[in-house]
């Protein structure tokens, strides 16, 4: 097994009496896209900033690409790419100048023209930063993070505050990076981003990791119920059988669409279809909605991700 790109053991961080991180452990393997999810104040940014070498830790062991971020900051920063959540540049700096200056900080850097093409900034290369749209600024932030061809990328809320179309564009770029087998640590407020992009996610709440697995596995482990929606040609009767593990069942105003919430969706669905057949109804439509990562998140933290 290769050495993990990131290894975190019993990591703690306190700000005076406030414990921001209360002993977290995780590893990220090379080529893995790892998502860190959590409500505001959960400790995501603190964790990421400790790993990037921007903040000292209070306790625990951390190795990033084999470096101790606290003691080998410069060596580490030379190998990683960071796309910050809140950052800015001088209004009067041109896109090409920004890439040129920042590439001079690294021992190795990629061809900036190729990077401009890849990030679709070629026609904006002489534009001032102040004239760029939100999406273009974010693409430039990604370009700066990729300048040194990093082995490990930290993306802190890379699509925060962007509209849906720009977010989709950035997702396309992130999927390309994922396809290149780069190791990525992503923090996000958008659950669909984590579901779509991450191989594994950790849910952080009040300074502790309360769940960590693949998004699919987390959904499977969830106690949250699935929803079955069936539509038939005739109205459903009020007296319906008590199917096992069903939490609730309701009929809409037409009487022909039945919504059943069940903790064992597959078993319930079989029973439901049998019952419909016995009744002699014609089945017109069936939908099964399994718990999303958002449902899992709410179940574990009691909060919505964007709260």
């Amino acid at each position: 097994m290769p050495e993990p790109a990131i290894s975190v053991r019993a990591l703690t961080k306190s700000y005076g009496a406030v414990e921001a991180l209360r002993g977290i452990d995780f590893e990220i393997q090379p080529g893995e896209v790892f998502g860190l999810l959590g409500p505001n104040g959960a400790g995501k940014t603190t964790t990421v900033e400790i790993l990037e070498g921007l903040r000292p830790r209070s306790g625990g062991e951390v190795a990033v690409l084999g470096f101790d971020p606290e003691k080998q900051k410069i060596q580490l920063k030379d190998r990683i790419g960071v796309c910050l959540q809140a950052t800015n540049m001088s209004e009067k700096i041109r896109v090409r100048e920004a890439l040129h200056v920042f590439s001079s900080f690294y021992r190795r850097s990629v061809d900036t023209n190729a990077l401009l093409r890849r990030l679709q900034l070629e026609d904006k290369c002489d534009a001032f930063y102040g004239t760029l749209s939100g999406g273009q600024k974010q693409r430039l932030a990604l370009a700066l993070a990729l300048l040194n061809d990093p082995a490990l990328l930290f993306l802190d809320e890379p699509t925060s505050g962007l509209d849906a179309q720009v977010r989709a564009e950035i997702h396309g770029l992130l999927e390309q990076l994922r396809g290149e087998k780069r190791t990525i640590l992503l923090t996000t407020h958008y659950i669909e981003e984590a579901e779509r992009l991450c191989d594994r996610v950790a849910i952080l709440d009040q300074g502790r990791i309360i769940a960590m697995d693949t998004p699919r596995q987390l959904q499977r482990q969830s106690r949250a119920a699935s929803t079955i929606v069936v539509t038939c040609d005739k109205a459903f009767p009020q007296d319906r059988p008590a199917w096992p593990e069903v939490v609730n069942s309701t009929v809409d105003e037409t009487g022909r669409t039945l919504t059943v919430v069940s903790r064992r969706a597959a078993a319930t669905l079989v029973e439901l279809i049998k019952w419909i057949d016995q009744k002699g109804f014609e089945l017109l439509d069936v939908h099964l909605k399994q718990p999303t990562l958002e449902d899992v998140f709410i179940e574990l933290t009691g909060k919505r991700l964007r709260e």
């Binding site: 920063k77 910050l84 950052t87 540049m89 001088s90 900080f105 690294y106 021992r107």
Partner: peptide
């Protein structure tokens, strides 16, 4: 002004002092 505008923050994540 550069520090307040979060401009220096971008330099902080690079390998320079």
């Amino acid at each position: 002004q550069e520090r307040e505008a979060n401009i220096l923050r971008r330099y902080k994540v690079t390998p320079i002092t």
